[in-house]
Design a protein around this nucleic acid. Structure first.
Lengths: 358, 358
DNA sequence: GTGTGCCGCTAAACCGGTTTTCTAAACCGG
DNA sequence: CCGGTTTAGAAAACCGGTTTAGCGGCACAC
């Protein structure tokens, strides 16, 4: 009686076929080193046993996983629900699958990103939402893996960034041209990491976009009042809460500059609940141009950034370094542009007076 | 002069600390088997060398990857752009990260799903869009991995399905109650696999939803004309093309039953381009209730299915089997319900006569 | 004084493959 | 018929860890 609860190993095939493990390996990987009949026979035996080379063992000997890692401090579940990540991941995926690579998301495990990194079986990493100073970046580097930074720059690693300052500037200039002066800025706050080190400094993205806003004000001979800048979570709820909070503190802005479309959507929702009409009584500009932006009513005026392309280019850069380890680091900068839709209007173009009905 | 271009291995740490490899391994995995000082010293040396246990080697010896696989015949890039997959993945991710598992998407590599499966380093698989007869399912089973089927049932494996027939029936009944009789059905066609075996049989999902539609007709003493059932790709473009095609063949339906929201949206777009107003001149019902459905104008009447929960439950089931291999297979069936929004209206409620302007 | 048990650690086997090195037989020209 | 080159495949080393078996030394009991 034969018991074989286990997955067949290469040794099983070798024994059954009366050859060495080497021969079996050759039959699959370099059949030209075997006589035709031997190779055929081995493959037949393997087939009948249902043998497949163990992928982990293969990774170990070949020293490659054929997998790209996507490193982010966001939780895994957020990555799939967040409308920004969808096209970004799509771009990465397209580049990866062109070359036969798989994708692996490196997100905090039980709150710890370093733990996730040390467990990741990848050939290289695309990092997003992580600055170059993050210890995880060094950790990856020491492991001998190439890394491409997205939305962050340092001289050492390859990177893909967008013209955030230019886009932000265009957004602010648009509102100023429409006559708005009392403008509320919704800034992206640092994501709460369930980590001991709580370096709650503003994200680099926030700093750069804020600089763009400020420049527009300066060009118009104005200054951006820091008390009008409110940090909030980059989500619909975060944007809604921030606008709501500002309103209840007595602020009565005529326009909102949001650093993400999600926040912009939240601000619109909160404004409506307060009885304000958009854009008649409140103009709102977002940032990112997520797919949803053109589908909401009114369609969102926002700064377009090529999210899909950003993911695609980052993955391309990474693949290059993975397949050619000696290649020098490269830096890409993609354009942004303002897209004017229906959520912004001239300051005094309001139709009727505000009603009390929502 | 010391050259060390390589990532430090356990042997390096052992040599440096003057102990055996075993001791180093113990220092990390079972420190209680070492004296406190030895363990500390080893960890110090490891730290100074920047040593991290190689994750692939670990997987090999521990015979577990702490990774769940998501098997689909769709291309990787589709998974991230498809509005159905977003919440589904989110649900899976939530369950996985609760238990400290990672996620790995098993999609065709250069068109071959079997190739992807044999390369996948996972502890178990959630399969979606794949029927139990697919050879890949057996392939996974032979590798000794547990598998949970989604939207497909067979006695052997665990599964999570929804009440498709009930949902479809409710959708059709809704249109019939509104007085519609000339109804166009947009069915989901089998995805084109870049594979030799072209078993272009209708997907099981299509069969079940169609049955639901038919039942509703029968209950109303009517029959569903097979010539009114058109198969198309489950995308916005697919739905648009299908409606457009039906129209140009002379069909003039007053309502559309789409088997996916994406197709429904496409039908609406095509109808508008033909000068039809929705819902005044054409009622449209979708299926799935993707996030976008409530945001479009008019908001889409559709059959809600708990996509997020479906992913979550599937992953829970899988995790159970992964952690307790002997456990029996289980079967879940989740409810669906019709959500009436703005894309459907009574047959003769049309406001004005159709204009020629679009 | 010696057997027993425990402590702290090491050597060797193992996970499941690939790759390098090596050998016996076949081939080949002179 | 002989030395040298191919050819087909085997043996062994290796990838980088973990785990099992075992060993020397010390404390304690008898």
């Amino acid at each position: 009686m034969e018991r074989r609860a286990h997955r067949p190993r290469i040794a099983d095939v070798a024994r059954e076929a009366g050859v060495s493990k080497t021969a079996v390996s050759f039959a699959f990987n370099s059949p030209e080193r075997l006589s035709l009949e031997t190779a055929d026979r081995i493959r037949e035996v393997a087939e009948s046993l249902g043998y497949r080379p163990h992928p982990v063992a293969r990774m170990l000997t070949q020293r490659r996983t054929m997998t790209l890692g996507v490193l982010t401090p966001q939780a895994l579940s957020v990555i799939f629900s967040n409308p920004f990540f969808a096209p970004f991941n799509e771009g990465i995926a397209r580049a990866a699958e062109d070359e036969g690579y798989e994708l692996h998301f490196i997100s905090p495990i039980h709150g710890s990103l370093p733990a996730a990194v040390s467990r990741a079986t990848v050939d290289g990493v695309v990092a997003i939402g992580v600055s170059a100073e993050h210890p995880e970046v060094g950790q990856i580097r020491r492991a001998g893996l190439p890394i491409v930074m997205v939305d962050a720059e340092d001289g050492e690693h390859s990177s893909v960034v967008i013209d955030e300052e230019g886009g932000a500037r265009a957004a602010a200039a648009h509102l100023l041209e429409l006559g708005h002066r009392d403008i509320l800025v919704l800034a992206v706050e640092a994501p709460q990491v369930a980590d001991e080190r709580a370096d709650r400094a503003a994200p680099a993205v926030t700093v750069r976009r804020l600089r763009g806003y400020r420049r527009a004000f300066e060009s118009a001979g104005l200054t951006l009042d820091p008390s009008r800048v409110i940090a909030a979570r980059a989500s619909i709820d975060g944007g809604a809460a921030a606008f709501q909070g500002a309103w209840s503190q007595g602020l009565r802005p005529t326009a909102v500059l949001a650093m993400s479309d999600a926040m912009a959507l939240g601000a619109i929702r909160a404004a409506r609940e307060l009885g304000l009409r958009v854009p008649a009584e409140l103009s709102v500009v977002g940032f990112d141009d997520i797919d949803l932006a053109s589908h909401v009513d009114p369609a969102l005026t926002t700064v377009h950034q090529p999210i899909r392309q950003k993911g695609f280019e980052a993955a391309r850069l990474l693949l290059e370094e993975v397949e050619q380890p000696a290649s020098p680091s490269r830096h890409l900068r993609l354009e942004t542009r303002l897209i004017v839709r229906g959520s912004t209007a001239p300051l005094h173009a309001r139709g009727e007076v505000p009603g009390t009905q929502q």
